[in-house]
Design a protein around this nucleic acid. Structure first.
Lengths: 144, 144
DNA sequence: CAGCATCCAGCTTGATACTG
DNA sequence: CAGTATCAAGCTGGATGCTG
């Protein structure tokens, strides 16, 4: 066990030691775990929005650029490459002129997108409560 | 509708226009939407891990610091303040000496945590596929 | 213990210009 | 259209020192 999170004292499987790095592993809470990197690609500034946009269907580079409000072409390009490398996004390039490249989610990407969208929807739905909470917080802080 | 994402042509409810900024609104894909900020707090470098840690139960400042591997006290403090302001985290300070402060999730925070944990679990579970995808990607790219 | 204030290195980002 | 290359600037975040 890498340390950090995952049950404090009660370890669910005492035989975990028998599988050094094989079976489970992958603990996002551990600094060095590769899953932390993937999670950052997925939840990063542009990753989440890109996946969210692609969840609605295949899109071309500049379509994506317009959809994800505020992303620069450099960042979009970078984001797409990271997601493609992680196997979440599929890139389909046609060697025509002018070139045409379509991006869409892989099955794995769709699985992640589902969870991500659930989170996004949850946050969007909570906005009124959040705004209220902020107002209260600021009122108490601002007064003092 | 702010623009950017949200169904391309097919709008599910034609009467959406009757509720200018009341009902739905909050579109993360729009640059200026406050929900984007909240989502960034939740999914940010430390926000997600902090929420994940608190999902297991109430924790004190330094306990959290140890749990979330790699976070500095400055970042943790900052993160907690943002989450508290957003109404996701509750801060309970006891005016004792030495001081004792407990943090835990609000009901809203727990709702978000659920979705977040689902995402994290999904990503962790996909790690093998991701690592495979990366290997393939690098092989093709490195060769050329 | 639970933080805040300050300083500063460096990574991330956005403009801009260029290529196939 | 679909990117890559380069560069300056700004924000992020870590280290340090101090407070109650």
């Amino acid at each position: 066990m890498t340390g950090s999170i995952s049950s404090p004292g009660g370890d669910s499987s005492a035989d975990a030691d028998l599988f050094p790095t094989e079976a489970l592993a992958y603990d996002v809470f551990a600094r060095a775990c590769p899953s932390r990197g993937v999670l950052e690609h997925v939840t990063g500034r542009w990753g989440g929005l890109t996946i969210g946009a692609l969840a609605e269907g295949s899109l071309r580079f500049n379509e994506l650029r317009r959809r994800v409000d505020g992303v620069s072409e450099k960042m979009l390009s970078q984001t797409l490459q990271a997601l493609e490398r992680d196997g979440l996004v599929h890139r389909e390039a046609q060697p025509t002129n002018p070139p045409r490249v379509d991006y869409d989610l892989t099955p794995l990407g769709r699985a992640v997108a589902g969870r991500l969208l659930a989170l996004i929807t949850c946050v969007e739905g909570a906005m009124e409560q959040v705004l209220d909470a902020r107002a209260r917080y600021d009122a108490e802080r601002g007064a003092r």
